[in-house]
Design a binder for these strands. Structure first.
Lengths: 341, 341
DNA sequence: CTGAAAGCGCTTACAG
DNA sequence: CTGAAAGCGCTTACAG
């Protein structure tokens, strides 16, 4: 039995306006009336109609979230961080995945704008190379926060890690373990993350006077275990000797470990390997995998907090102020780089 | 620049009704008019207002999804399955996590009903012991589909695996490997899954004339790695000898493996271990973990399909017909039960 | 403290 | 083929 304010008002001999105000705790309604209304509403199981309310308030208290993919522990944790904050602050979350396709990403953005979300939090697809849909969000007076896979040039709030620093730290860790012939299985060419990790790798080499060798840098498009395996095989068969390897993701590193183990190569003593993201698998594989911890839950939490602070500023001062947060990462040392010095 | 049908109508010298019909491809509008409207709408970047449309159509094309938690590969995959189907069928997904709390679950259900979702797909929290919020969904004429953690008694569509059969198969696999002293680290007492897996375990023992020993059954509340470790320790220190172990989740099995390895117990030759869910970690741990594959993506897909078929029936024949789907599971044999016979 | 009235942006039965 | 009008369920400025 679906009920509306009108029906409730009729049953209680009040006006719809009065009932609405009572439910929303307007100060100009008597406590007695509020009590009557609230208890009646509970009894009949009235569910407010958020869509109708929006038409007047212009606020849906809804946020759209877009991930490149969702079966990925890193993104699941970001989602958890976002969700926690959303539920605490009484926001509703709409979610979608682009499946690494810019077209699907654009479709989702458009759909979310039609849903009149108050804001969109998103991580870009690998092949997103054009940002008109992001400008669209902003021009529709909707708050935009990018996380993880961000676009530097878009005018909105952003949260990511300092990938360059993290790439630098990962590489320097290998150097400190005595590695001098260090390969890098990098990510695809577009995403800012993979560019920055690569730049960090180069910077570490340069600082420690190790010559950069382009032949030691291979590209992993999808960051999968299988690719890691194949790249390790390719490198091995090309005859290029290495004693260290920095992989753009833990998955790629796991694939590489699998290949090198098949070749009876001793990890870490012949080759030290470091991954990226600190996935759970890394702690169970043998040897366990050294990695960079990205603190995904925190990233989600901060993305939501950036939204909330922007929303507040928009509401109280009617202006926006974009923020760019870079979260610190942490090196997690495990067996795959625990070389006997 | 936000535009409405009214503004567009004015600009094109049409009525709002005409513009609305043109955009929704009503057959009684001339092709010429449609073309004009559509191209203009594209030019000015008009975004339809779904909330306003709902007020007339009574359809939000929105589905609410509730998970106990979301940082769990099994649930991520279910989400992927649901999302894929939702995006293909042009539905919007609202998501929330109960964090295994019935109160939060109730709050979410209520919130989703206020959002006027067309349906709710959910997996129950561990401690959900009372189902009034689920009856609420149904009495609000909203379609309800339960998946994974279901409640048998609630009158709605459901999709799960045949947990009893799966528990039976897991246990019988151990028996066929020559195990006769088989322990079971079961899940919490409430959820139907853990009850059914336990019943399958007992049935396999009984069929093969192995006496049931309650001392060999321990309860894991959260299904975590740590609990698996502690339960293995507890069992070991109690002096009860076992040669086989069936764990309610892969995580619990991983914890148990970790403990037994520390004790230098040979897995599988002294103790065979089987998990549940076929997580990625299981294939990387040493020894790799035998498990039951639940086909999570398919479960999500089917949950969404059940919704769609119910929605269609409701729309065309104005009646509901609940379905209960039990998906087949598959035994994935790996090293942890690969005993030399 | 309470109510009457307008209006948010759509869709749809109806008239022409 | 096109348009005028009503109404979905709320909120809010205004009047009393």
């Amino acid at each position: 039995m679906k009920s509306s304010l009108k029906q409730i008002a009729k049953a209680l001999n009040l006006s719809t306006a009065g009932v609405s105000k009572a439910l929303n705790d307007y100060p100009d309604i008597s406590l007695a009336t509020k009590k009557i209304v609230k208890s009646y509403v509970k009894k009949v199981g009235y569910k407010a109609n958020n869509q109708a309310a929006y038409l007047r308030t212009r606020k849906t208290r809804t946020i759209g979230v877009i991930f490149p993919e969702v079966t990925n522990h890193f993104f699941s944790e970001i989602l958890e961080g976002i969700m926690d904050q959303a539920q605490k602050n009484n926001y509703t979350l709409i979610i979608g995945h682009s499946k690494e396709s810019m077209d699907e990403e654009k479709r989702l953005v458009n759909q979310f704008l039609q849903q009149k979300v108050d804001g969109i939090l998103m991580s870009l697809a690998q092949n997103t190379s054009e940002f008109s849909h992001l400008e669209d969000v902003v021009s529709n007076e909707t708050i935009l926060v990018l996380f993880d896979k961000i676009a530097r040039t878009v005018n909105c709030s952003k949260v990511s890690i300092d990938d360059k620093k993290a790439g630098f730290n990962a590489t320097e860790h290998l150097i400190k373990k005595g590695c001098s012939k260090i390969a890098h299985f990098r990510g695809d060419l577009n995403p800012q993350n993979s560019i920055d990790r690569y730049l960090g790798y180069r910077e570490a080499l340069s600082l420690h006077n190790i010559n950069y060798d382009a032949n030691k840098v291979l590209i992993s498009r999808k960051g999968s275990v299988k690719e890691g395996y194949l790249l390790a095989k390719k490198l091995y068969e090309s005859g290029i000797k290495i004693d260290g390897l920095f992989c753009v993701t833990d998955m790629v590193a796991l694939g590489a470990i699998r290949f090198f183990k098949e070749q009876k190569i001793d990890i870490p003593n012949e080759i030290c390997i470091i991954g990226f993201s600190k996935t759970m698998v890394g702690s169970f594989v043998n040897p366990s995998l050294t990695s960079i911890d990205q603190k995904a839950i925190k990233m989600g939490k901060m993305a939501m907090k950036l939204f909330i602070s922007e929303e507040k500023m928009l509401r109280t001062e009617n202006r926006l102020e974009n923020q760019y947060l870079e979260l610190k990462t942490k090196l997690i040392k495990r067996e795959s780089t625990d070389k006997i010095l």
